[in-house]
Amino acid sequence: MYNFDFVKPASVEDAVAALSGDEAQPLSGGMTLLPSMKQRLNAPATLVSLTGIDALKGVCRDGDMLVIGAATPHAVVARDAAADYPALAELAGQIGDPMVRNRGTIGGSLANNDPSACYPAAALASGATIVTDKREIAAEEFFQGMFATALDEGEIITSVKFPIPQKAAYAKFAQPASRFALTGAFVAQYADGARVAITGASENGVFRWSEAETALSSNFSADALNGLAASADQMIGDLHGTPEYRAHLVGVMTRRAVGAAH
């Protein structure tokens, strides 16, 4: 990887100031950014580590919301969200392997918006709010297609607010080599209806499966999905699966998630 300057501020203000420099980029767990820099796909002049900022870490309950600091590692979410939002904790506990979960963070995962990542499905299905140093962004507006988000240059995620559902579950069909989702479905039931978000399947990244949401909002059971099929149009096709295969998995994983919801 090309060399760069490394800085490790202790506050959000100092991080934002450091990021205003030319070609500066935030570094959180590094589990995605460092491999892409090794491949020279990315060559920032300065890396601003967020791992020394205590204000960006931790899981806390605020009324009917669960608020998670952007630099909170997956392993901590798996442990500390378990009582308040078990489906979210279980999702975090299935990301990669233990070493990836000890370093990788929710903020890094959302900012990266990999089309096969797990957290974007939870954020979209929960109607989460992405809080940055400048504003609050609804998950709906935040995800803007594969690897694209509403974040401006130099803007950092500080926390994510998840409305806690009545019940929810994440069902992931793991791609066995990468352990990312070949297709994953996050289903959440709220007082005003059900939400379903699908990751791993679409060329446009994470999306809501609205037909399934309508069906589940009137009857939250796997049977309600009988006869519903996602279209293979714009689904990802690669050596791991055709668009038709992924479209089929959308239905299978959504049913599994509904069955597992608790």
């Binding site: 570094l27 590094g30 491999p35 890396l47 791992t51 370093r103």
Partner: peptide, 12 residues
Amino acid sequence: QAVKSCTVLAQD
């Protein structure tokens, strides 16, 4: 905590 040391910066 167990980490993959090839994906952690020494200065970090």
